[in-house]
Design a protein around this nucleic acid. Structure first.
Lengths: 154, 154
DNA sequence: CAGAATCCGTCTGAGTCACAGACGATCTGT
DNA sequence: ACAGATCGTCTGTGACTCAGACGGATTCTG
């Protein structure tokens, strides 16, 4: 029971571009391009995104950080552990709710994330080398917009 | 040694949109949206992408499939195993190089991938619900273009 | 033509990683 | 005061990935 493909209909559904494969390929390449630019930062890109959110976002507690970054809360525990050990962030008790730990950047953490940011943007641009400057901006905007809307639905 | 953030410079580098986080969020959501649409297809989205490439691509052998899909060749072995067991593809000996196995769709595999394709496109569209129709087309085009260029460099 | 080197597909083992579940501490609602 | 929920942590377990080795087959080299 074999279809030898000789009557594969041209213009059929198989020609729909495969968004899923493209996304996966981009993410894989993202890891490869960006990780080196981060040096020995704990947990690579994920650590960087955490630092960003801690420094400039509105998610100070570990659970809200975890939800926003899409990781498990048990993972967030030792992720923060390693960032603390590296001297980039600190855990503070929240006087208003002593169950929570407010995660804040140290001064060194802030300068580090600022320095890393430009390098990351650089790496991202090399990742999108096939696109024109205008297209890169479009892609950035569309990805952020689509992903942002997903966050709201959770 | 704490930076309390009160002098976080507005418009600083932290405001650069985080492409990496957006991509990761999109891929995660992709898995969640598309997997249900695939039913009990072995290996979910990855199995679907394999079927697509087998049916309509130019990568008939297992190693070329693995490279194109970005998976290890040892993984491709049992991925194909399960698709064979499901009756969707078959392994043929290549008379021109008997080291290789040519992977081909069965008739049932072909009708299956065709049927799944429209459902996948549907799920992808719901994933991009926040974007206009025009923007979805743009995103698709840009992602495919960027990812395609990456493939050429390997 | 013989032998070395390479490639394909498969299998096994080791290592990594995410996540469920339980726990104490803390807060909220009644 | 008490039950239920939440936060952060810890432990165990299952899934997953990849390096390495192997036989079969091909190509290269002298």
């Amino acid at each position: 029971m074999i279809d030898d493909g000789t009557h594969a209909d041209p213009g059929g559904p198989g020609l729909e571009p495969d968004l899923g494969r493209g996304l996966l390929a981009l993410v894989r390449a993202y890891q490869e391009h960006v990780s080196p630019a981060l040096g020995d930062l704990p947990h690579g890109p994920r650590g960087y995104q955490t630092l960003r959110e801690v420094g400039y976002g509105a998610h100070p507690t570990q659970v809200s950080l975890a939800r926003h970054l899409g990781v498990d809360r048990t993972v967030m525990t030792y992720l923060i552990d390693d960032l603390v050990e590296a001297g980039l962030v600190e855990r503070r008790a929240n006087p208003e709710d002593r169950r929570q730990r407010l995660v804040v950047l140290t001064a060194r953490g802030r300068s580090e994330v600022d320095a890393l940011c430009s390098r990351v943007v650089e790496a991202e641009d090399s990742l999108l080398g096939a696109l024109t400057t205008k297209e890169r901006g479009q892609l950035r905007r569309l990805v952020i917009k689509a992903a942002g809307a997903l966050d709201d639905n959770r």
